[in-house]
Design a protein around this nucleic acid. Structure first.
Lengths: 151, 151
DNA sequence: CCTTGACTTGAAGTTAACTTCAAGTTGTAG
DNA sequence: CTACAACTTGAAGTTAACTTCAAGTCAAGG
Protein backbone atom coordinates (compact mmCIF):
# COMPACT_ATOMS: atom_id res chain seq x y z
CA UNK A 1 0.00 0.00 0.00
CA UNK A 2 1.31 3.45 -0.76
CA UNK A 3 0.53 6.58 1.13
CA UNK A 4 -0.36 10.14 0.27
CA UNK A 5 0.74 13.28 2.06
CA UNK A 6 -1.99 15.78 2.80
CA UNK A 7 -0.74 17.95 -0.04
CA UNK A 8 -0.97 15.12 -2.52
CA UNK A 9 -4.41 14.16 -1.33
CA UNK A 10 -5.43 17.77 -1.68
CA UNK A 11 -4.27 18.22 -5.27
CA UNK A 12 -5.64 14.85 -6.32
CA UNK A 13 -9.03 15.33 -4.73
CA UNK A 14 -9.36 19.03 -5.35
CA UNK A 15 -10.12 19.61 -1.68
CA UNK A 16 -8.06 22.13 0.33
CA UNK A 17 -5.67 20.79 2.95
CA UNK A 18 -7.45 22.81 5.58
CA UNK A 19 -10.67 21.05 4.65
CA UNK A 20 -8.99 17.65 4.79
CA UNK A 21 -7.66 18.35 8.27
CA UNK A 22 -11.11 19.51 9.21
CA UNK A 23 -12.63 16.28 7.88
CA UNK A 24 -10.12 14.35 9.94
CA UNK A 25 -11.10 16.12 13.16
CA UNK A 26 -14.66 15.08 12.32
CA UNK A 27 -13.62 11.48 11.84
CA UNK A 28 -14.61 11.41 8.18
CA UNK A 29 -11.13 10.36 7.13
CA UNK A 30 -8.20 8.93 9.04
CA UNK A 31 -4.40 8.94 8.72
CA UNK A 32 -1.25 7.38 10.03
CA UNK A 33 1.72 9.54 10.97
CA UNK A 34 5.36 9.59 9.85
CA UNK A 35 8.20 9.70 12.39
CA UNK A 36 8.08 13.46 12.01
CA UNK A 37 4.35 13.54 12.79
CA UNK A 38 3.14 14.29 9.30
CA UNK A 39 -0.07 12.71 8.04
CA UNK A 40 0.01 9.87 5.54
CA UNK A 41 -3.31 8.80 4.06
CA UNK A 42 -3.99 5.37 2.59
CA UNK A 43 -4.83 5.55 -1.10
CA UNK A 44 -8.44 4.57 -0.39
CA UNK A 45 -8.89 7.95 1.27
CA UNK A 46 -9.00 9.49 -2.17
CA UNK A 47 -12.19 7.59 -2.90
CA UNK A 48 -13.54 8.44 0.50
CA UNK A 49 -13.05 12.13 -0.11
CA UNK A 50 -14.77 11.82 -3.47
CA UNK A 51 -17.65 10.16 -1.73
CA UNK A 52 -17.84 13.01 0.72
CA UNK A 53 -18.00 15.60 -2.05
CA UNK A 54 -20.58 13.60 -3.96
CA UNK A 55 -22.64 13.23 -0.81
CA UNK A 56 -22.50 16.95 -0.20
CA UNK A 57 -23.82 17.60 -3.66
CA UNK A 58 -26.71 15.31 -2.91
CA UNK A 59 -27.41 17.60 0.02
CA UNK A 60 -26.04 15.59 2.90
CA UNK A 61 -24.32 17.36 5.77
CA UNK A 62 -20.93 16.24 7.05
CA UNK A 63 -22.62 14.86 10.13
CA UNK A 64 -24.87 12.68 8.01
CA UNK A 65 -21.94 11.63 5.86
CA UNK A 66 -20.01 10.76 8.96
CA UNK A 67 -22.72 8.32 9.91
CA UNK A 68 -22.99 6.91 6.42
CA UNK A 69 -19.25 6.46 5.98
CA UNK A 70 -18.76 4.97 9.41
CA UNK A 71 -19.77 1.63 7.90
CA UNK A 72 -17.09 1.74 5.22
CA UNK A 73 -13.48 0.70 5.82
CA UNK A 74 -11.04 3.59 6.12
CA UNK A 75 -8.16 1.86 4.43
CA UNK A 76 -9.72 -0.28 1.74
CA UNK A 77 -12.10 -0.22 -1.19
CA UNK A 78 -15.72 -0.53 -0.07
CA UNK A 79 -17.48 -3.70 -1.13
CA UNK A 80 -19.96 -3.76 -3.95
CA UNK A 81 -22.74 -4.08 -1.38
CA UNK A 82 -21.52 -1.04 0.55
CA UNK A 83 -21.51 1.06 -2.53
CA UNK A 84 -24.82 -0.27 -3.73
CA UNK A 85 -26.54 0.67 -0.51
CA UNK A 86 -25.07 4.15 -0.49
CA UNK A 87 -25.73 5.01 -4.08
CA UNK A 88 -29.28 3.77 -3.91
CA UNK A 89 -30.19 5.89 -0.92
CA UNK A 90 -28.48 8.90 -2.44
CA UNK A 91 -30.40 8.38 -5.61
CA UNK A 92 -33.64 8.42 -3.68
CA UNK A 93 -32.63 11.67 -2.11
CA UNK A 94 -31.83 13.15 -5.47
CA UNK A 95 -35.14 12.02 -6.89
CA UNK A 96 -36.97 13.72 -4.08
CA UNK A 97 -35.02 16.92 -4.48
CA UNK A 98 -35.64 17.01 -8.19
CA UNK A 99 -39.34 16.40 -7.70
CA UNK A 100 -39.58 19.28 -5.26
CA UNK A 101 -37.82 21.68 -7.56
CA UNK A 102 -39.99 20.58 -10.45
CA UNK A 103 -43.12 21.21 -8.43
CA UNK A 104 -41.89 24.70 -7.64
CA UNK A 105 -41.05 25.28 -11.28
CA UNK A 106 -44.49 24.21 -12.40
CA UNK A 107 -46.08 26.60 -9.96
CA UNK A 108 -43.88 29.37 -11.23
CA UNK A 109 -44.79 28.55 -14.80
CA UNK A 110 -48.47 28.83 -13.99
CA UNK A 111 -47.74 32.15 -12.36
CA UNK A 112 -45.99 33.48 -15.43
CA UNK A 113 -49.10 32.67 -17.40
CA UNK A 114 -51.54 34.19 -14.97
CA UNK A 115 -49.63 37.33 -14.21
CA UNK A 116 -50.22 36.38 -10.64
CA UNK A 117 -51.62 39.62 -9.40
CA UNK A 118 -54.02 37.92 -7.06
CA UNK A 119 -52.70 36.62 -3.81
CA UNK A 120 -55.49 34.08 -3.39
CA UNK A 121 -55.10 32.12 -6.57
CA UNK A 122 -51.34 31.74 -6.51
CA UNK A 123 -49.67 28.68 -5.03
CA UNK A 124 -46.33 30.40 -4.64
CA UNK A 125 -47.95 33.17 -2.66
CA UNK A 126 -49.66 30.73 -0.34
CA UNK A 127 -46.93 28.74 1.33
CA UNK A 128 -49.34 27.06 3.72
CA UNK A 129 -51.04 25.29 0.83
CA UNK A 130 -50.70 21.61 0.12
CA UNK A 131 -48.39 21.74 -2.87
CA UNK A 132 -45.56 23.74 -1.38
CA UNK A 133 -45.77 22.00 1.99
CA UNK A 134 -42.96 19.60 1.13
CA UNK A 135 -40.35 22.02 0.05
CA UNK A 136 -40.43 24.89 2.50
CA UNK A 137 -38.26 25.24 5.51
CA UNK A 138 -35.88 27.27 7.59
CA UNK A 139 -32.36 28.16 6.45
CA UNK A 140 -30.56 27.71 3.12
CA UNK A 141 -30.54 23.97 2.85
CA UNK A 142 -33.57 22.85 4.74
CA UNK A 143 -32.61 19.77 6.69
CA UNK A 144 -34.83 16.94 5.65
CA UNK A 145 -34.73 14.10 8.11
CA UNK A 146 -31.42 12.36 7.79
CA UNK A 147 -31.95 8.95 9.26
CA UNK A 148 -33.63 7.30 6.31
CA UNK A 149 -30.88 8.48 4.03
CA UNK A 150 -28.13 7.07 6.16
CA UNK A 151 -29.24 3.57 6.88
CA UNK B 1 -54.72 51.15 2.94
CA UNK B 2 -54.68 49.06 6.07
CA UNK B 3 -51.67 48.11 8.07
CA UNK B 4 -50.33 44.97 9.72
CA UNK B 5 -48.47 44.72 12.99
CA UNK B 6 -45.36 42.59 12.95
CA UNK B 7 -47.25 39.84 14.76
CA UNK B 8 -50.00 39.79 12.17
CA UNK B 9 -47.51 39.79 9.33
CA UNK B 10 -45.73 36.92 11.03
CA UNK B 11 -48.76 34.69 11.45
CA UNK B 12 -50.05 35.47 7.97
CA UNK B 13 -46.73 34.88 6.25
CA UNK B 14 -45.51 32.07 8.44
CA UNK B 15 -42.24 33.89 9.02
CA UNK B 16 -41.01 34.55 12.56
CA UNK B 17 -41.11 38.12 13.85
CA UNK B 18 -37.39 37.97 14.49
CA UNK B 19 -36.85 37.10 10.85
CA UNK B 20 -39.11 39.95 9.72
CA UNK B 21 -37.15 42.43 11.82
CA UNK B 22 -33.99 40.96 10.37
CA UNK B 23 -35.32 41.41 6.84
CA UNK B 24 -36.11 45.00 7.68
CA UNK B 25 -32.57 45.72 8.83
CA UNK B 26 -31.47 44.36 5.47
CA UNK B 27 -33.85 46.63 3.61
CA UNK B 28 -35.89 43.77 2.18
CA UNK B 29 -39.10 45.10 3.68
CA UNK B 30 -40.05 48.47 5.13
CA UNK B 31 -42.48 49.77 7.74
CA UNK B 32 -44.01 52.92 9.13
CA UNK B 33 -44.24 53.46 12.88
CA UNK B 34 -47.13 54.15 15.24
CA UNK B 35 -46.96 56.98 17.79
CA UNK B 36 -45.69 54.36 20.22
CA UNK B 37 -42.89 53.31 17.84
CA UNK B 38 -44.39 50.00 16.79
CA UNK B 39 -44.00 48.81 13.22
CA UNK B 40 -46.94 48.87 10.82
CA UNK B 41 -46.47 47.16 7.48
CA UNK B 42 -48.46 47.97 4.35
CA UNK B 43 -50.51 45.02 3.19
CA UNK B 44 -48.27 44.62 0.12
CA UNK B 45 -45.49 43.49 2.43
CA UNK B 46 -47.26 40.17 2.75
CA UNK B 47 -46.67 39.53 -0.93
CA UNK B 48 -43.12 40.78 -0.63
CA UNK B 49 -42.37 38.31 2.13
CA UNK B 50 -43.85 35.50 0.06
CA UNK B 51 -41.58 36.54 -2.77
CA UNK B 52 -38.61 36.40 -0.46
CA UNK B 53 -39.42 32.87 0.65
CA UNK B 54 -40.07 31.72 -2.89
CA UNK B 55 -36.80 33.29 -3.98
CA UNK B 56 -34.96 31.49 -1.21
CA UNK B 57 -36.35 28.19 -2.36
CA UNK B 58 -35.04 28.93 -5.81
CA UNK B 59 -31.65 29.25 -4.18
CA UNK B 60 -31.24 33.03 -4.01
CA UNK B 61 -29.50 34.59 -1.05
CA UNK B 62 -31.05 37.50 0.81
CA UNK B 63 -28.43 39.76 -0.71
CA UNK B 64 -29.50 38.73 -4.19
CA UNK B 65 -33.14 39.10 -3.27
CA UNK B 66 -32.43 42.52 -1.90
CA UNK B 67 -31.15 43.55 -5.31
CA UNK B 68 -34.03 41.90 -7.13
CA UNK B 69 -36.70 43.40 -4.89
CA UNK B 70 -35.16 46.85 -4.94
CA UNK B 71 -36.98 47.43 -8.22
CA UNK B 72 -40.39 46.63 -6.79
CA UNK B 73 -42.49 49.14 -4.87
CA UNK B 74 -42.54 48.57 -1.12
CA UNK B 75 -46.11 49.67 -0.63
CA UNK B 76 -47.96 48.49 -3.71
CA UNK B 77 -48.62 45.48 -5.89
CA UNK B 78 -45.83 44.96 -8.42
CA UNK B 79 -46.83 45.45 -12.03
CA UNK B 80 -47.40 42.56 -14.35
CA UNK B 81 -44.09 43.37 -16.03
CA UNK B 82 -42.22 43.34 -12.72
CA UNK B 83 -43.57 39.96 -11.85
CA UNK B 84 -43.03 38.61 -15.32
CA UNK B 85 -39.36 39.55 -15.27
CA UNK B 86 -38.81 38.02 -11.83
CA UNK B 87 -40.62 34.79 -12.41
CA UNK B 88 -38.91 34.23 -15.73
CA UNK B 89 -35.42 34.64 -14.33
CA UNK B 90 -36.26 32.43 -11.37
CA UNK B 91 -37.58 29.80 -13.67
CA UNK B 92 -34.31 29.81 -15.56
CA UNK B 93 -32.49 29.32 -12.32
CA UNK B 94 -34.73 26.43 -11.39
CA UNK B 95 -34.25 24.80 -14.78
CA UNK B 96 -30.50 24.98 -14.36
CA UNK B 97 -30.63 23.55 -10.85
CA UNK B 98 -32.84 20.70 -11.95
CA UNK B 99 -30.57 19.93 -14.88
CA UNK B 100 -27.56 19.74 -12.58
CA UNK B 101 -29.24 17.42 -10.15
CA UNK B 102 -30.45 15.22 -12.99
CA UNK B 103 -26.92 14.98 -14.36
CA UNK B 104 -25.69 13.89 -10.96
CA UNK B 105 -28.50 11.38 -10.68
CA UNK B 106 -27.70 9.88 -14.05
CA UNK B 107 -24.10 9.45 -13.05
CA UNK B 108 -25.18 7.79 -9.85
CA UNK B 109 -27.48 5.47 -11.75
CA UNK B 110 -24.63 4.39 -13.98
CA UNK B 111 -22.56 3.78 -10.89
CA UNK B 112 -25.21 1.58 -9.32
CA UNK B 113 -25.12 -0.54 -12.42
CA UNK B 114 -21.36 -0.80 -12.66
CA UNK B 115 -20.66 -1.39 -9.00
CA UNK B 116 -18.19 1.39 -9.43
CA UNK B 117 -15.19 -0.27 -7.97
CA UNK B 118 -12.82 1.38 -10.36
CA UNK B 119 -11.82 4.94 -9.72
CA UNK B 120 -10.91 5.64 -13.32
CA UNK B 121 -14.19 4.80 -15.01
CA UNK B 122 -16.51 6.60 -12.62
CA UNK B 123 -17.68 10.13 -13.24
CA UNK B 124 -18.67 10.68 -9.64
CA UNK B 125 -15.21 9.74 -8.52
CA UNK B 126 -13.55 12.10 -10.94
CA UNK B 127 -14.78 15.56 -10.08
CA UNK B 128 -12.33 17.21 -12.49
CA UNK B 129 -14.00 15.54 -15.44
CA UNK B 130 -16.15 17.31 -17.96
CA UNK B 131 -19.55 16.06 -16.85
CA UNK B 132 -19.44 17.10 -13.23
CA UNK B 133 -17.67 20.39 -13.94
CA UNK B 134 -20.91 22.34 -13.78
CA UNK B 135 -22.22 21.19 -10.49
CA UNK B 136 -19.28 21.16 -8.12
CA UNK B 137 -18.31 23.93 -5.79
CA UNK B 138 -17.44 25.09 -2.34
CA UNK B 139 -19.93 25.20 0.50
CA UNK B 140 -23.54 24.01 0.80
CA UNK B 141 -25.21 26.18 -1.81
CA UNK B 142 -22.52 26.98 -4.31
CA UNK B 143 -22.95 30.59 -5.31
CA UNK B 144 -23.63 30.75 -8.99
CA UNK B 145 -23.17 34.23 -10.35
CA UNK B 146 -26.08 36.33 -9.23
CA UNK B 147 -26.15 39.21 -11.68
CA UNK B 148 -27.95 37.46 -14.50
CA UNK B 149 -30.63 36.27 -12.14
CA UNK B 150 -31.31 39.68 -10.75
CA UNK B 151 -31.58 41.92 -13.75
C1' DC C 1 -57.20 51.97 35.71
C1' DC C 2 -54.98 47.64 35.43
C1' DT C 3 -53.23 43.65 33.61
C1' DT C 4 -51.21 41.11 30.14
C1' DG C 5 -49.66 39.97 25.81
C1' DA C 6 -47.45 42.23 21.98
C1' DC C 7 -43.95 45.16 20.89
C1' DT C 8 -39.15 47.81 21.15
C1' DT C 9 -33.73 47.75 20.85
C1' DG C 10 -28.91 46.29 20.24
C1' DA C 11 -25.91 42.82 21.30
C1' DA C 12 -24.65 38.36 21.56
C1' DG C 13 -25.36 33.49 20.39
C1' DT C 14 -26.09 29.65 16.82
C1' DT C 15 -24.82 26.32 13.02
C1' DA C 16 -22.27 24.43 9.16
C1' DA C 17 -18.28 24.09 6.87
C1' DC C 18 -14.58 25.80 6.46
C1' DT C 19 -10.29 29.28 6.25
C1' DT C 20 -6.68 31.92 8.33
C1' DC C 21 -3.13 32.63 11.46
C1' DA C 22 1.12 32.26 14.18
C1' DA C 23 4.91 30.03 15.43
C1' DG C 24 7.13 26.66 14.84
C1' DT C 25 9.00 21.53 12.68
C1' DT C 26 9.92 18.22 8.75
C1' DG C 27 11.16 16.44 4.21
C1' DT C 28 13.72 16.72 0.15
C1' DA C 29 16.05 18.66 -4.04
C1' DG C 30 20.34 20.23 -5.15
C1' DC D 1 24.33 20.20 4.43
C1' DT D 2 21.31 23.74 3.44
C1' DA D 3 17.43 26.10 1.78
C1' DC D 4 12.80 26.19 1.31
C1' DA D 5 8.41 24.28 0.47
C1' DA D 6 5.42 21.46 2.92
C1' DC D 7 3.93 20.21 7.13
C1' DT D 8 2.25 20.67 12.37
C1' DT D 9 -1.16 22.67 16.10
C1' DG D 10 -5.07 25.04 18.39
C1' DA D 11 -7.49 29.04 18.34
C1' DA D 12 -9.82 32.44 16.24
C1' DG D 13 -12.18 34.35 12.21
C1' DT D 14 -15.79 33.96 8.33
C1' DT D 15 -20.54 33.85 6.21
C1' DA D 16 -25.52 33.39 5.93
C1' DA D 17 -29.61 33.66 8.04
C1' DC D 18 -31.41 33.84 11.72
C1' DT D 19 -32.69 33.31 17.10
C1' DT D 20 -32.30 34.59 21.84
C1' DC D 21 -31.91 37.71 25.45
C1' DA D 22 -32.56 41.55 28.69
C1' DA D 23 -34.85 45.26 30.04
C1' DG D 24 -37.94 47.54 29.25
C1' DT D 25 -42.58 50.25 26.61
C1' DC D 26 -47.19 49.94 24.27
C1' DA D 27 -52.06 48.58 23.30
C1' DA D 28 -56.40 46.83 24.28
C1' DG D 29 -59.97 44.10 26.88
C1' DG D 30 -62.46 44.05 31.20
Amino acid sequence: MDWLSIGELSTRSGVATSALRFYETKGLIASERTDGNQRRYPRATLRRVSLIRAGQEVGLTLAELSEALAKLPHDATPTKADWHRLSKSWRKRLDRQIAELEALRDELTDCIGCGCLSLKSCAIFNPGDAASELGSGPRYLMGNSSSEVVR
